[in-house]
Amino acid sequence: MSASSSFRFTKGALNQTLAARVVLLGLGALAVFGTALNADAKPISFADGTTFMHEREGNMIQTELFYAPKVWWSIGMADTTMRSDDKLRETRYQHLQANWLLKRWNLPGAQGNLFASFGYGFADTVKQGVPMVIHPGHTVGQTATYSESARRYTFMGDYETRQFYSSFKMDTHQTSRFLDRTDTVQLGLSPYAHDYDELAVWFAGQVKRYRGMNDKTEAGGFVRLFKNNIWVEIGMTEGRKSQIMLMMNY
């Protein structure tokens, strides 16, 4: 399919999917906000907990909002925009997403968890430099946009004490055209064992393996500050790109 035909298809698809998108995201918003506001606020780790996360890292911006009716599952929305390092492709994924706590290990002074997530929604992509044949022997680069259904699969685990933190995450966004996967490993240490009413300070490092939009492995480091229901991470990747994350539980 040439870029121009893709573009025409996309324009039609955009119109066709607009109503469905509004309905889907509207239902998601209702599920999240409607229930959460009527319930006693709790963290995601508990029944009736709501979690908000916003992350900016390099070429990625992600906002997630989840409500957990029970400790073992939550539902909500994820909005992720990724841009390739060469700036030739940008995709925005918007999903309704369900998360499951597959297993939790509650140990004296430690906790381990395994989570899985599945999201279904839409992806809008703008891609530059898509070759289009004008006539035999003459090809030009075009800007194409694609709007299509998208899925997200996530599997993650963590183990932490009050001074040691480790986690892994496999995060895959997929459409009929694209498959963008990011695998992350994080290790963190806290210089002291914090208590509930104290500020927790963590120094953490991470390695991310990107496949799809970007194909690279990148390390980074960040400081995590954590008190009461607010969690902030500020750091930098080895490519000198800033990394900021805010998480709040209600």
């Binding site: 963290p43 995601i44 780790s45 140990l107 906790q111 954590f226 229901n229 969690w231």
Partner: peptide
């Protein structure tokens, strides 16, 4: 309690019992 490692854990237990 077993499994308490962070403020989110404490917050959840606190709110459960306050309820």
């Amino acid at each position: 309690l077993d499994g308490l490692v962070c403020a989110f854990c404490a917050q959840g237990v606190e709110k459960k019992m306050k309820a």
